[in-house]
Amino acid sequence: MDANSLTPKARPARLSATDPGITDPVFSVRGLNLHYGSAQALHGVHMDIPRHCVTALIGPSGCGKSTLIRCFNRMNDLVENVRIEGLITFDGRPIDDPLLDVSELRRQVGMVFQKSNPFPKSIYENVAYGPRIHGISRRADLDAIVERSLRSAALWDETKDRLNDNATGLSGGQQQRLCIARALAVDPEVILLDEPCSALDPISTARVEELIQELKGRYTLIIVTHSMQQASRVSDYTAFLYLGRLVEYGPTEQLFLNPMCRQTEDYITGRFG
């Protein structure tokens, strides 16, 4: 990819297939290679994530979307035999800085997973979990955080009377919104969503998409999705990955209406993938 050799500078317009010219990025990814053992999953990825926008990662399954998104909160550290080269900065600071506390990074960069994974605890305890971990223990503070987070996740009205019920009793869509509330409770800057709707029915999906729109103003969101409709509905920027490479990255409208690369066009028109 020739895009990898470009230097990041503020550019007024889209200069190349993979450089939308973002100023003040939250994350900057430079020359990222990732190997699982001997298999390389990411090849020289180079991208900037815009602040307070929704960035969608699309691509056929197995192309490395999850791998890439899990780099932002260093969740790949937990995988054995993983080797990461290149540089990712968060607000200008390398995230593998030995002085940087992973726990603090993960507090600022929350994550919502493909399959909802509430803790086998009460709804209240699920949301209060993060704040407790980060040292908040006063009941009044926790109550306020829980209410605020559930309201932000548009779940408060459904759960306010059953906060002490087990979270596993909620429906799939509610569980996923609970996971979003849980991520919001620690007051993050960025929220990573890895195919958050792939296990949900259309109505729940619509609610989560609405929620993403509401959160956009306050948080930076990165969402992995296999649905191009979803990407075009919710995102401001879209990145297309293929076989571990960033093929095209630009404002969503441009990418879908006027793709610069042949592969992108083939993918979004459904000719493969």
């Binding site: 969740m75 994974n117 803790f119 993060g130 980060h134 996971c179 991520a183």
Partner: peptide, 21 residues
């Protein structure tokens, strides 16, 4: 595994994850 990852992704250490989840 997903439940453990949920805890770790919130910034909990491995020990906290084991103890609390």
């Amino acid at each position: 595994r997903a439940v453990r990852e949920g805890s770790l992704a919130l910034g909990a250490t491995r020990f906290e994850t084991i103890r609390r989840v």
